[in-house]
Computed example of a mutant assay.
Amino acid sequence: MPTVQVTDLKDDDFLLDVREDDEWQAGHAEGALHIPISDFVARYGELTEAAPQDGRVNVICRSGGRSAQVTMYLAQQGIDAVNVDGGMQAWEAAGRPVVTDQGQPGYVL
């Protein structure tokens, strides 16, 4: 399973958040694309439209389990995807910003 550490991500790296709606609303990485794992296959086209054609998709969830499943699926589709090790918990612990849809400080649910 290809993984990346939160500390190795740059601010402009493409991030796909696969947590559920309540987790996203509590707080997320600014600029991330949100497609819950429960809707992922039905909404796959949103990812292909938004993802950089020549870039990597960094997949994140709360701790890394759900994002690992999506990363494996994307790799099977021929997409350069990696799992963000430790998920949003590691993101928050590393001091990376967590925001709400309104741009206010958020938290990891």
Rank of each mutant, 00 (worst) to 15 (best):
M1P: 14
M1L: 15
P2L: 11
P2D: 11
V4A: 09
V4G: 08
V4K: 08
V4P: 05
V6R: 03
V6H: 07
V6I: 11
T7P: 10
D8I: 09
L9I: 07
L9Q: 02
K10F: 06
D11T: 11
D12L: 12
D12A: 13
D12N: 14
D13Q: 04
F14I: 02
F14E: 00
L15R: 02
L15M: 10
L15C: 09
L15W: 09
L15N: 04
L15G: 03
L16T: 04
L16A: 01
D17I: 01
V18I: 04
R19K: 04
R19G: 04
R19M: 02
D22T: 12
D22A: 12
E23D: 08
W24V: 01
Q25P: 06
A26G: 05
H28Q: 00
H28P: 02
A29Q: 03
E30I: 05
E30S: 11
E30T: 10
E30Y: 06
A32T: 03
A32S: 09
A32R: 00
A32I: 01
L33S: 00
H34D: 01
I35H: 00
I37F: 07
I37H: 08
V41M: 14
V41L: 15
A42F: 13
A42N: 13
R43W: 08
Y44P: 07
Y44C: 13
E46M: 05
E46P: 05
L47P: 01
T48N: 14
T48F: 13
A50F: 03
A51G: 04
A51D: 05
P52W: 07
P52K: 13
Q53V: 15
Q53P: 13
Q53W: 12
D54R: 07
G55L: 11
R56D: 09
V57E: 03
V57P: 02
V57F: 00
V57L: 02
N58W: 04
N58P: 05
V59P: 04
V59R: 03
I60F: 10
I60E: 07
C61W: 05
C61A: 07
C61N: 03
R62W: 15
R62P: 11
R62L: 15
S63P: 09
S63R: 08
G64A: 02
G65M: 08
G65Y: 10
G65C: 09
R66E: 06
S67A: 09
S67I: 03
S67E: 08
A68L: 09
Q69T: 14
V70N: 04
T71P: 07
T71K: 04
M72W: 14
Y73G: 14
L74E: 08
Q77C: 12
Q77I: 11
G78R: 09
I79A: 12
I79D: 08
I79S: 11
D80G: 12
D80V: 12
A81R: 06
A81S: 09
N83R: 04
D85L: 15
G87L: 02
M88I: 12
Q89K: 14
A90R: 08
W91E: 01
E92D: 15
A93Y: 06
A93C: 10
A93G: 06
A93N: 11
G95Y: 08
G95R: 10
R96A: 02
R96K: 11
D101C: 09
Q102D: 15
G103W: 06
G103S: 01
P105D: 04
P105W: 06
G106E: 00
G106C: 01
G106P: 00
Y107D: 14
V108Y: 01
V108A: 00
V108Q: 00
V108D: 01
V108R: 00
